[in-house]
Each structure stands twice: as C-alpha cells, then as structure tokens.
Computed example of a mutant assay.
Amino acid sequence: MSFIKIAAFTALATISATSFAAKPTSIVFDSNGETAEGTDFAAYMVKCSNGKKVPLTAWDSRKKWCVGDAGSEQCEKKQIKAAKAACKAS
C-alpha cells in the first residue's frame, strides 16, 4: 500500500510543479525595427506571472515568433506559444 501512496504523491507533485510554472500575463508591443540587412521585425515584451519580463521578436510579417532576437533557436509559429516558452525559460 505504501508504494501506491508514493506513486500518488509523485504524480501530484509533478502536476503541482507544472501548474506553478511561470505563465505569460501580458504581451505588449514595444517597437518596429530593421536589421542591418534590411529585414523588418517587431519587438514585444512578455510579462510573466513570476514577475520577469522577456523580449519576443516577430519576423516574416509576424509569422515567426522568437524568444529574444532572430539568432534565437527558440521560435514558434504562434505568439502565445513563444510567450509561454519565454516564461518557462525565465
């Protein structure tokens, strides 16, 4: 019976840890910009539930969203997915 209790506790602890992960609370437009090569982008700031602020950039007419700048490996097709990734990483 103690094995079942340990397994249940582990499952609950895992669920609790994921529910307390930082989540985006707002995404605010910051500015439009252009790289030295002439590529347009838009800069945003994501505010997370843990109090941190993380930059996002939008590329290809807002079809590609990256945590940080264009050199970032963390890019998504949707703004909310990129914002969630940004808060999770912070």
Score class of each variant (00 low, 15 high):
A11G: 12
L56M: 11
P24E: 10
A21M: 15
A22Y: 07
K84T: 05
V46Q: 01
G71I: 02
K53S: 12
Q79P: 00
R62Q: 12
S90W: 06
G33L: 07
C75A: 07
M45L: 13
T10D: 00
Q79H: 04
A89Y: 10
T18E: 15
I6E: 07
S72G: 07
I4K: 08
G38H: 04
K81D: 15
I15Q: 13
A83Q: 03
S31W: 03
A13Q: 04
S72H: 01
A86Q: 10
A13H: 06
A11W: 11
S31P: 02
S26F: 07
T14K: 11
F9Y: 09
T14E: 03
C48L: 02
M45W: 09
A43H: 06
K78A: 10
V67L: 10
M1S: 03
S19I: 13
A58M: 06
T39M: 11
G33S: 07
S90F: 09
A70N: 03
Y44D: 01
S26Y: 12
V54Q: 04
F9W: 09
C48V: 03
V46E: 03
A22G: 01
Q74M: 15
K77H: 08
A7H: 01
C87A: 09
K64F: 07
A11Q: 10
A36P: 03
R62N: 13
C87T: 07
T39H: 12
V46D: 01
G68L: 15
I15M: 15
C75Q: 02
K5Y: 00
S61Q: 13
S16Q: 04
S2D: 09
Q74L: 15
Q74V: 15
C66F: 13
G33F: 08
G38N: 04
G71V: 12
T35V: 07
K23C: 05
G38Y: 01
S31R: 14
A42S: 15
S16A: 11
P24G: 08
A11Y: 07
C48S: 00
